[in-house]
């Protein structure tokens, strides 16, 4: 990432301009030509620095009121295979391997589950239990009670 990428990122991380020629508008704002803006965005997409370009729905507004962090204890030598299968389920938004802290924290596989109700999430948990089968040593669901702080992950603009 060079200075120009950083400028494009800080100019777009809150969103793309809602005008007919959004990339030309960005280019004008940054004092460069719009071909450069488009090329830089394509490069960042190719490198995975941009995951995707599109709309981010507010899942609460769409009725997804039950959002649980599910944590699973699975054998380390199976985690890659199981993590990929779990991440491929349509109701899982984030799926990571994280370290255990034995004995008090035995869980090594984390998946955020989303549903319209806790009953729906419970049903999805059963689907995960079935998927993991004999490799599921244990699991727990951690529902959020309140957001204590949320500033978002943003790249800071440099002076």
């Amino acid at each position: 990432m060079d200075e120009l990428d950083r400028k494009i990122i800080t100019a777009t991380q809150a969103g793309l301009p809602l005008v007919k020629k959004p990339y030309a508008a960005l280019a004008e704002q940054l004092g460069i030509d719009s071909e450069t803006v488009k090329q830089r965005l394509r490069n960042m997409l190719d490198k995975g620095q941009i995951r995707r370009i599109g709309a981010v729905p507010n899942h609460y507004k769409l009725g997804y009121m039950a959002n649980a962090m599910s944590v699973w204890n699975v054998p380390d030598d199976k985690i890659k295979e199981l993590g990929n299968q779990l991440g491929a389920l349509p109701f899982v938004s984030h799926c990571y391997e994280r370290p255990r802290f034995l004995p008090e924290w035995p869980y090594n596989l984390f998946a955020m589950l989303h549903g319209k109700s806790r009953e729906e999430v419970a049903d999805k948990v059963q689907q995960v239990v079935k998927l993991l089968g004999e490799y599921c040593v244990g699991y727990e669901l951690l529902y959020s009670k309140q957001i204590l702080k949320k500033t978002g992950l943003r790249l800071k603009a440099k002076d």
């Binding site: 969103g15 965005l41 960042m44 620095q49 941009i50 995951r51 370009i53 729905p57 992950l153």
Partner: peptide
């Protein structure tokens, strides 16, 4: 209804 519209960066 949308929280944002644009590129999602992998920070």
């Amino acid at each position: 209804t949308l929280t944002r519209f644009g590129p999602m960066y992998d920070i």
